[in-house]
Amino acid sequence: MFVDQEGADPNFTATGVVTGNRVTVTVTGEVDMSTADAMLRAATVDGAAAATLDLREVSFFDSAAIHALLQLADRYGEALLVHPSGQVRRVLEISGLSTQPWLSAD
């Protein structure tokens, strides 16, 4: 299954692929108050018990994005894996979330 949450913002895409019970969402561009919900929707598909969020191509990540990420952490718990870009990692460090178990070390 393939889910694309490309919206009106040309600097953003959130594309999800479901394999078994895991959804893998690749996000590019800017995740902010106008796009965070699309990222959340792409990662919360019916039947998915686990999620991988690839944020390595994200150039901007604000408080709305953090809120969406925390909603995903609540939903998936230990079954969430997040691969951050340098920018996303920096925002998570500043917000005190850099030691979360779902945050990949790569």
Results as ranks from 00 to 15, higher is better:
Q100L: 08
V91A: 07
A48R: 03
R89Y: 11
G77K: 04
A64C: 05
T19C: 05
T44S: 13
A73F: 02
N11D: 12
E93M: 14
L69N: 00
D9Y: 10
G86S: 13
L55P: 06
F61N: 02
P101H: 09
G86D: 15
G7C: 14
N11S: 10
D62Y: 02
M1Q: 05
G29E: 09
V27C: 12
V45N: 13
L70Y: 02
V91W: 02
A42W: 02
E6F: 00
G77H: 04
D74Y: 02
V82K: 01
A105W: 02
A68F: 01
L103H: 03
D9K: 06
I66G: 06
D62M: 06
Q100T: 10
V3R: 12
N11V: 02
Q100H: 07
D32E: 14
M33K: 11
G96H: 10
T19D: 15
V25F: 02
G96F: 08
L69A: 00
V17E: 15
R22V: 13
L70M: 14
M33H: 12
R22I: 11
L70P: 02
A65M: 05
A51C: 15
N11Y: 14
E6H: 04
S34K: 06
G7F: 13
R22E: 14
L55A: 03
E93A: 11
M39Y: 04
D32V: 10
G47N: 10
R22A: 07
T15K: 15
V25C: 03
H67Y: 11
L40M: 08
E93C: 10
D62W: 04
L69F: 03
T24W: 14
D37I: 00
D74R: 08
G16P: 03
V3N: 12
E93D: 14
D9Q: 11
L55K: 06
T24N: 14
F12S: 09
D37Y: 05
D106Y: 07
R22S: 01
V17K: 09
T52L: 12
R89P: 00
V82A: 03
N11F: 15
S63D: 11
L72M: 09
A14Y: 07
S59G: 14
D54F: 07
V45D: 12
V25E: 02
L81A: 10
D62A: 08
A79Q: 09
T35A: 11
S59A: 12
A50E: 15
F12A: 07
F12V: 03
E57H: 09
A14Q: 06
L97E: 04
V58M: 08
Q5P: 02
